[in-house]
Simulated scan of single mutants.
Amino acid sequence: MTTVLDSLVQGYDRKTVIDSLDLTLRPGITALLGPNGAGKTTLLRTLATIMPPRSGTIRIDEVLIDSERTARTVRDRIGYLPQDFGFDPQMTVTDFVTYAAWLRGVSTTDLRRHVDQALAQVDLTDQRRSRMRKLSGGMRQRAGIAWAIVGQPRLVLLDEPTVGLDPRQRLHFRKIITGLSNTIVLLSTHLIDDVAATADRVVVLYAGAARFDGTVAELERMDCADLPGHTALERAYIHLLPEGEQRI
């Protein structure tokens, strides 16, 4: 499976947020870095087929997404976790994840197995009967991750998925996503250590354009010792920003 963006332009009203972006995603974990306003969330929403492109093309699993009809044909292959995801507070955790599996087209006979698997992956089996409104912030975030991965979608889009997770839970999250074999994972995050621990590839967005696209090791080699940052990867990321944004 591949996801291919060709000269993608996207925005809101008269504002262009993504400008002529070319990007090919293949199975593995791609980290999406960039400051607030760089276009990360807009890119994820576009790939999730929520927003049709202004121009350019998107192909998901070789399907050209050029209408609502073609978008519907690929949505069951996409798992998307927005940064602020909605839920019915009266739903149990099982109901919440089951609904995601149903939307993804999981068959009735396989539904329970896929839901159980997703809950086990995020360590929520013991809370399966809890109401969503009663979960802690970290548990709710893990339920959201279960929503995104249930049914084994082939494209998983995660927008700041470790927000609200404690260090142990973040380690568990890393184990989850590194175990998603044959899956394209696009992970938008501000946490450089999550990138270093999980990503096969890094794309740095700034003002809707890719300033860097390569491996973690290739990005680290751009380390600039006189810039702020605790690690080579942090300093290399800062180095890619315009000079006026490099100082803290």
Rank of each mutant, 00 (worst) to 15 (best):
D84G: 09
D13F: 05
A101C: 11
P27C: 09
G34M: 01
L119M: 03
L186G: 02
Q117R: 15
I18F: 01
T231L: 04
L21F: 03
R77G: 11
D213G: 02
Y12S: 06
Q141F: 00
H114D: 06
G138N: 12
L158G: 00
P228W: 00
S181Y: 05
D19K: 13
V202Y: 08
V216S: 06
G37I: 00
I18H: 01
T94S: 13
V93Y: 02
R133D: 15
Q246T: 05
Y206S: 11
D166Y: 03
G34D: 01
D200R: 11
D123G: 13
L227A: 06
A209R: 14
T108F: 11
S188Y: 02
Q141E: 06
A236E: 09
A120K: 07
E234D: 14
G137M: 05
G179M: 07
A148N: 04
T183D: 08
L81K: 09
R112Y: 07
I248H: 15
R69Q: 13
I58P: 01
G86C: 14
G164P: 06
D116Q: 10
R221A: 10
W102M: 14
P89T: 08
V150G: 07
V195A: 05
A148F: 01
Y237I: 11
K40S: 01
V74H: 04
P82F: 01
A118F: 01
S107R: 08
Q121D: 15
N36A: 02
V4E: 14
G164Q: 09
L187C: 04
A143K: 01
R26F: 06
G34N: 03
H239S: 08
L21W: 03
T189M: 08
G11M: 05
T98D: 04
Q141L: 03
D223T: 04
L241E: 14
D213Y: 01
P53G: 02
R112P: 08
R133A: 13
R54W: 05
T57I: 03
M91D: 14
S67R: 12
V97R: 12
A38M: 13
T109K: 14
R77M: 12
T41I: 04
I58G: 00
R133M: 13
V97G: 09
P35Q: 08
I184K: 13
D66G: 11
T215F: 04
F212S: 06
K134P: 11
T162W: 00
V203I: 10
D126C: 15
T108E: 08
V185E: 03
T41S: 11
K134H: 13
